[in-house]
Amino acid sequence: MAKSESTTIDVPESSAVAKGKAPLIVHGSAASAAAGGGYKRGLSIFDFLLRIAAIVAALAASATMGTSDETLPFFTQFFQFQASYDDLPTFQFFVIAMAIVAGYLVLSLPFSVVTIVRPLAAAPRLLLLVLDTAVLTLNTAAASAAAAIVYLAHSGNPNTNWLAICQQFGDFCQKTSGAVVSSFISVVFFTILVVISGISLKRP
């Protein structure tokens, strides 16, 4: 009799304890998911603002380089000194590449908005991570190639008899240098965007 009573008493107690613990576990996971969604939404908003800033930087770089043109005042009817971005294939590549970068950033804005509305969705964030990394490579290549030409324009190379032209074409060099600086600012923005996407893909 004593054993049967103890058995009937122990079974309800264990089930009650189990029933009492289950709601606590569900409540904790829901709270952690809500907290994770909150900080991911904040990262998505920052991502959207960075993309707008990167659009401005990329467009400024492409437009500044595309309008870099200077003609020296001393010229005759048959001979003149002129410097323009389309005289160098590297600068032409720079203008096209930065225009592509700016166009991609504009097209990526709707996906960034989706990550704000649905901060826990992994698919749009993963897509942005892959595409941002690819476009970052293009941006870096264009900026680095143009930076090398701008350096030669400022300093020249005595070993190859390449003369520095920035003492004569000051406005041209100023514009091209500004375009390169703006393109590297875009590189920094893209790097931060890739880091944000990587952090947002982590589980809360």
Score class of each variant (00 low, 15 high):
1 M>F: 07
1 M>W: 03
2 A>S: 12
3 K>D: 15
4 S>D: 06
5 E>L: 13
8 T>R: 13
8 T>F: 09
11 V>K: 15
12 P>D: 10
12 P>E: 14
13 E>D: 07
14 S>G: 04
15 S>K: 15
16 A>R: 12
17 V>M: 09
17 V>W: 10
23 P>C: 00
25 I>Y: 00
27 H>W: 05
27 H>Q: 14
27 H>E: 14
28 G>M: 09
29 S>K: 09
30 A>E: 13
31 A>D: 04
31 A>G: 04
32 S>Y: 05
34 A>C: 00
34 A>H: 03
36 G>V: 01
37 G>S: 12
38 G>E: 11
46 F>P: 02
48 F>R: 14
50 L>P: 07
52 I>G: 09
53 A>C: 10
54 A>K: 10
55 I>C: 03
56 V>P: 02
57 A>E: 14
59 L>C: 12
60 A>E: 14
61 A>S: 15
63 A>S: 14
66 G>V: 11
66 G>W: 01
69 D>I: 05
70 E>C: 01
71 T>P: 00
73 P>K: 06
75 F>Y: 13
76 T>N: 07
78 F>I: 06
78 F>H: 09
78 F>S: 11
80 Q>F: 08
80 Q>P: 01
82 Q>T: 12
83 A>W: 06
83 A>L: 04
84 S>A: 10
84 S>C: 02
85 Y>K: 04
85 Y>T: 06
87 D>H: 05
89 P>A: 04
89 P>F: 02
90 T>A: 09
91 F>V: 00
94 F>V: 09
95 V>R: 12
96 I>R: 06
98 M>V: 06
99 A>I: 03
99 A>T: 15
100 I>T: 10
101 V>K: 01
101 V>A: 12
102 A>N: 05
103 G>D: 08
104 Y>I: 01
104 Y>C: 01
105 L>C: 06
107 L>D: 11
107 L>A: 14
107 L>V: 08
107 L>C: 10
107 L>I: 07
108 S>P: 07
109 L>Y: 02
110 P>A: 08
110 P>H: 04
111 F>P: 02
112 S>P: 03
112 S>L: 04
113 V>N: 03
114 V>W: 09
114 V>Q: 14
115 T>V: 11
117 V>P: 01
117 V>Q: 08
123 A>M: 12
123 A>W: 06
125 R>G: 06
132 D>K: 00
134 A>G: 06
134 A>N: 03
135 V>G: 02
136 L>E: 02
137 T>L: 08
138 L>K: 04
139 N>G: 14
141 A>G: 11
141 A>F: 08
143 A>T: 11
143 A>I: 09
144 S>Q: 13
146 A>P: 06
146 A>N: 07
147 A>F: 01
150 V>D: 12
152 L>T: 00
153 A>Q: 07
154 H>V: 10
154 H>R: 13
155 S>D: 09
155 S>Q: 14
158 P>E: 00
160 T>H: 00
162 W>E: 00
164 A>P: 01
169 F>P: 00
172 F>T: 02
172 F>K: 03
176 T>C: 13
177 S>D: 15
177 S>P: 03
179 A>V: 06
181 V>I: 15
182 S>H: 08
182 S>N: 15
183 S>G: 15
184 F>G: 03
185 I>M: 15
186 S>N: 15
187 V>Q: 13
187 V>T: 15
189 F>H: 15
195 V>W: 09
200 S>C: 05
201 L>E: 05
